[in-house]
Design a protein around this nucleic acid. Structure first.
Length: 443
RNA sequence: GCCGCGGUAGUAUAGCCUGGACCAGUAUGCGGGCCUGUCAAGCCCGUGACCCGGGUUCAAAUCCCGGCCGCGGCGCCA
């Protein structure tokens, strides 16, 4: 390895390393050439450190090399760690600088302050944008959310699964799918692992989770939709009601909220001046949609027709309501109308026009959808027909239910949306390293 | 898919409403120079742009039309 230590590690051990030989590898962040004394700030993923050379004290080759450096050159610097009046309290007095690579063109985007450039420019030159620690922090948080998800569900006896992303049919009503040429057949990119996580539960794994990409062929033009995103999915068998599913969703949210003081989450929240997610000790409120209609009408003068889904304004207002009246960044809206839910959702026994389903709003944005699934074969067939769908088209799925399917339910959570809402990002594309939207398939 | 807004150097912007003194200003980058402690270093010199096409006008970055591209709202959803 050219590089032994991150800058952060050098800084963490600076007392021990003082006056000793160190090697720093990274990108040239900034050059301050004062003539007889020259500084270069070297940056890596973990932080920055100043490299110094002085005429008469440092080798001439080092001075010449610093003069020839450009921003974003890749270098390794050998030198002695010295106390210095810098922000870090130390600097590296260079004895040797190896230039490993130099930009072949002027930079189209400056790394420092890249977040001030327009989003299209940043995405176009995302490899430079990402070198900005403010931007990297987003993805460190994203990795953290995924890790907490994995750890929480693993600790609860869930098994991680990996389902096919090339599928024969669109899973749900509505959402459009991308066709792909699959030898001599047309297949589709999975828009949800829905059928296969149910498969895994029925197949005896009982409790499963998956972190994987999903694909939506909808021509959205909004700041909260992507055509490819990561879904955090769970599915669990032997539930008594859809409240059991919500309990497990809430368990994860609580675990996440409880761990945001850990690195790298802490740094990400601090970088974006974001409040830690707030949720009441008594639990996340669960409000039937029928009540939500009333709250919206009475408190906000917002009319939503009975039996319809909340629109995005309605969701925003319910988020506001939860925050102001219930002291919670989260609120479950439950018992959605059958009309607006997919065919596999279980209908309420007391009122088949409603379902055992829920959405979870986080600061006014839907981040989770879930519910109890219909596990009774004949009821499932009848539900399909009720939705005007042909059972034949879903036979491969229906077959799962023929030989003993336990009552089960699950949920899907949008990873990028969780990150976006946690940091207060304006656009979900910022929460995706290389977003795919209607116009963008490169880089 | 429907609706709205916008496109000025590499990047971010000023100018546009109220056409002329704009061969387009500023910051940063880039090229060159000065400088022994900078820390968004500073100072001096230089470099580089009006999305494309048509129209109105004596005159268009500015007004009008079309196109292309981008962004957002709605719908749909995570």
């Amino acid at each position: 390895m050219l590089k032994e230590r991150f800058v952060w590690e050098v800084l963490a051990e600076k007392e021990k390393l003082l006056e000793g030989e160190v090697r720093i590898c990274g990108w040239v962040h900034r050059i301050r050439d004062l003539g007889r004394v020259k500084f270069a700030i070297i940056r890596d993923r973990s932080g920055s450190i100043q490299v110094t050379a002085k005429k008469g004290e440092s080798p001439d080759t080092v001075l010449e090399t610093i003069e020839s450096l450009r921003q974003e050159s890749v270098v390794c610097v050998d030198g002695v760690l010295k106390k210095a009046p810098t922000r870090e309290g130390v600097e590296v007095k260079a004895t040797k600088i190896t230039v490993i690579n130099t930009p072949v063109e002027p930079l189209p985007l400056e790394v420092e302050g890249s977040e001030k450039a327009s989003l299209p420019t940043r995405l176009r030159y995302r490899w430079l944008d990402l070198r900005n620690p403010k931007i990297t922090a987003v993805f460190e948080l994203e990795a953290f959310v995924a890790r907490v998800f994995r750890e929480y569900y693993t600790s609860q006896g869930f098994v991680e699964i990996f389902t096919p992303k090339i599928v024969a049919a669109g899973t749900e009503s509505g959402a459009e799918v991308f066709p792909v040429l699959y030898f001599d057949k047309t297949a589709f990119l999975a828009q949800s692992p829905q059928f296969y996580k149910q498969f895994a539960v029925i197949a005896g794994l009982e409790r499963v989770f998956e972190i994987g990409p999903v694909f939506r062929a909808e021509p959205h033009h909004t700041s909260r939709h992507l055509n490819e995103y990561h879904s955090l999915d769970i599915e669990l068998g032997f539930i008594e009601s859809f409240h059991d599913v919500m309990d497990y969703v809430e368990g994860f949210i609580r675990s996440l909220a409880g761990r945001v003081e850990e690195e790298p989450a802490r740094r990400a929240l601090e970088t974006y001046s974001a409040e830690p997610p707030r949720l009441p000790a008594s639990g996340i409120p669960r409000i039937p949609i029928a009540e939500a209609y009333e709250i919206l009408r009475e408190k906000y003068g917002k009319e939503v027709e009975e039996g319809e889904d909340l629109d995005s304004e309605g969701e925003r207002l319910m988020g506001q309501y939860a925050r102001e009246e219930l002291d919670s960044d989260f609120v479950f809206i439950i018992e959605y109308p059958w009309k607006v839910r997919p065919f596999y959702t279980m209908r309420m026994e007391s009122n088949p026009e409603l379902t055992y389903s829920f959405d979870l709003l986080y600061r006014g944005l839907e981040i989770v959808t879930g519910g109890q699934r219909e596990h009774r074969y004949h009821q499932l067939v009848s539900n399909l027909k009720d939705k005007g769908l042909e059972p034949e088209g879903f036979q491969f799925y229906l077959d799962f239910f023929k030989h003993g399917a336990p009552p089960h339910g699950g949920a899907g959570m949008g990873l990028e949306r969780i990150v976006m809402q946690t940091l207060g990002l304006d656009n979900i594309r910022e929460a995706r390293m290389l977003p795919r939207d209607t116009e963008r398939i490169t880089p």
